[in-house]
Structure formats: structure tokens, C-alpha cells
Amino acid sequence: MIQMFHVSKSYEGSAPALSDITLNVPKGEFLFITGPSGAGKSTLLKIMFGSEAPTDGQIIIDGRNYVKIPPADLPGLRRRIGFVFQDFKLLPGKSVFENVALALKVMGVGPGDIKARVNRMLSYVKLQHRANFKPLSLSGGEQQRVAIARALVKDPAIILADEPTGNLDPALSNEIMELFKEVNNRGTTVVVATHDRRLIDLFGRRTVMLEGGRIAGQ
């Protein structure tokens, strides 16, 4: 599903965020990416998502080979990938419902369909009662679950989740991870970046350890 060959990424004026990453994520895989803060976990996910371009190397996503993803392909790629952003990236002016609905709107899904799917998704993440709230009036954990709902609602082929449980208590974290597992059981490829050892141990899936932008262990 996702393959990376000798991918490197350097931001101007700092040490390389990623160096020479070669990684294969087969279809239907559930993969953890872990490592200390600043190791390059977010950068790796962003490159898979096409929101950062690698300085070197190649990526194959869904059978298509990219050195650099052409801008015209980005919307299509992003509709097939659900991304849970570490900083949520919710629209402050729109309600929880609208934020989640937007992911379907931009794909051209009809309003009736949207209503049903968004409501179902909100109840999965236990936020039905917050549907009409604005994101900023929610707690950090609630905002995080809105971000998760928005990534999952479109039934994407790939889920890339960047610290999806960073703001959740252990019980809720487990529930969210169960949700990812369920989605994964239905065939979705899931990549979760986290430094929560507890979760990794609990779920026991393939784990890639990053350190200083290099793969330090699998």
C-alpha cells in the first residue's frame, strides 16, 4: 500500500528530519511508528500524505510512484487517506458536525448520506451530544476525537494517525485504538504514530522505531 525507498527530508537550517528511510506498509497492515519527540514521526506521516515533499527518495502509494506528488493528484490522494493531525486542524468557525461533514462534502457526497454517516461516526467517538458545539468550546480530548471522526468518516483506504491518543485518558485511548483496530479488520491500512509504549504493548502490532530521523528498530 505504502512503500518508501531511501526517503530523506531536511528542513532548511536544521539537521535532517528523516534520513534514508526505506519502509513497506502492505495493504491491510496495522503499523505503529514510535520514537522520542523530534524523531521524525510526524514528518514521515506528512510525506506519506503528500503535505511534505521528500528531499530525496521515492514513494509508492496505492501503486503509484511518486518522486514528488503532482498538485493535481493531491485532492484524490487525500480523499483516500484519513489523516488525524497531531494539532487536530479543525475549523474553529464550524460546528463539530460541520467539521466532520466537510470531509464528505469535498468528495461530493449527498446531504442525506452525510447526515447519516456523520452522526454514526460521532456516536462511535462518543460525541453525539457535542454535534452543534464549536471545536474551541471542547476539551482537548474531545477535539482529538472530532479529528479522528473526520478522518474515519470517509471510509478511507489508509488511515494515518499522528498521536491520536495524545490527549486522551487510558480508557478512552483504548477505545479509540479499538476503533482503529475495527477499521483495520475491515481492510483499511492503519499507521499510528505514538510514543505511548503502553498502547504498543497492549496491541502488539508491528512497530517501527525512529530515532533522529533513522529507523532504529522494527
Binding site: 480523499r79 489523516f83 466537510l102 470531509a103 469535498v106 468528495m107
Partner: peptide, 15 residues
Amino acid sequence: EEIEIMRLIGASDTY
């Protein structure tokens, strides 16, 4: 910010 987020979740330029 809104435009950026819209593009991140797959909105086309036309949208």
C-alpha cells in the same frame, strides 16, 4: 487556515 485545512482533507482547487 480554513483554506489550508480544506485542501488537507481533499478539497479540490475548484471547491
